[in-house]
């Protein structure tokens, strides 16, 4: 059996394009929601005012139907002996750091930063993460397949996974109390904080307020709003009296975390041209070699 050249080319063009096209389809519509609204909200955390009462930890658990225990048990300050991280059982935790410059220790609340260019949203294989108009980065249990790539991607190492669950484990992280803010309530931690450490507001207004604070009390704060520019900006931002690397914030550049990756992806898949070009090239080489063989061997069948 011998295939005519015309046929070969036609079939390879049609079928080839569809096979390769399928694999490299870059769906624009099917991408997860990733809105960067000017109206997005944020929280400014003034760590210098925090007394480490950990009421936010309790309120957060309550608001998310997680076992919270007795609110008095949160007065226990021995937990500060160890640095803690948010995990599947606590979406936010407060750590304490001794301050060599001042009398008082510094308490730092940790949770998801709600990045403006979230690595988790870019990375998630099924688009389970999305950035909402109000700034929240939230996770969709109906989509997640539990691959944990979001944990690899997050520059703050925030998403936690229910490793101990055998069936349908969840990714757990602060959702900026999306269900509460939708109905006009404050995030649970913001609402309960007795020291007004946490200020909820429009992100640009928060930046203005933070700058004002630094200007008025230069001896109280280091001149750095963490989150204003880190990884392209975050919705949660921090003020501190110590250098941020001393209180366990990662040192990050101002470039959005997914930037390089997305540039590479778009380069390889620009309008499918590179994959289709390789396909065509290989097809051509194959066809040439095939014909050469036929000519030198004569017709075999």
């Amino acid at each position: 059996m011998k295939q005519s050249r015309r046929n070969f080319l036609k079939t390879s063009a049609v079928l080839g394009a569809s096979v390769v096209g399928l694999s490299s389809a870059k769906p624009t519509k099917a991408a997860p929601q990733n809105i960067l609204s000017d109206e997005r909200m944020g929280v400014l955390v003034d760590t210098t005012a925090c007394i480490g009462c950990r009421k936010c930890e309790w309120a957060c658990k309550k608001a998310h139907d997680m076992p919270a225990g007795n609110i008095e048990s949160y007065d226990d300050r021995t937990v500060f002996e160890k640095r803690r991280r948010p995990d599947a059982k606590a979406l936010t935790v407060v750590n304490e750091y001794q301050n060599p410059n001042g009398k008082f220790p510094l308490n730092v609340k940790v949770q998801c930063m709600h990045c403006d260019h979230p690595a988790c949203v870019s990375a998630c294989i099924v688009g389970a993460f999305s950035k909402q108009a109000n700034g929240s980065v939230i996770w969709d249990t109906d989509k997640c397949i539990g691959c944990r790539y979001c944990m690899v991607a997050c520059p703050f190492q925030v998403p936690a996974f229910e490793f101990e669950k055998a069936w349908s484990p969840d990714i757990k992280k602060c959702d900026f109390c999306f269900d509460r803010t939708k109905t006009g309530l404050l995030p649970a931690c913001v609402e309960i904080c007795p020291m007004e450490v946490l200020t909820y507001g429009k992100r640009d207004e928060l930046i203005r307020a933070a700058k004002e604070k630094i200007r008025l009390y230069p001896e109280r704060y280091v001149n750095h709003i963490f989150g204003e520019y880190e990884v392209g900006g975050t919705s949660w931002m921090y003020l501190s009296s110590m250098d941020f690397t001393k209180v366990d914030f990662p040192k990050l550049s101002q470039n959005p975390a997914p930037g390089v990756t997305e540039a590479i992806q778009h380069g390889i898949f620009a309008y499918f041209i590179p994959p289709i070009a390789i396909y065509a090239l290989l097809g051509g080489v194959m066809w040439l070699n095939k014909n050469r063989k036929h000519e030198s061997h004569g017709e075999e069948e």
Partner: peptide, 14 residues
């Protein structure tokens, strides 16, 4: 899920 839930920016998806 990746068959029907696409995320074009995700390398893992690709």
């Amino acid at each position: 899920h990746p068959l029907i839930m696409w995320n074009g920016t995700s390398v893992l998806f690709e």
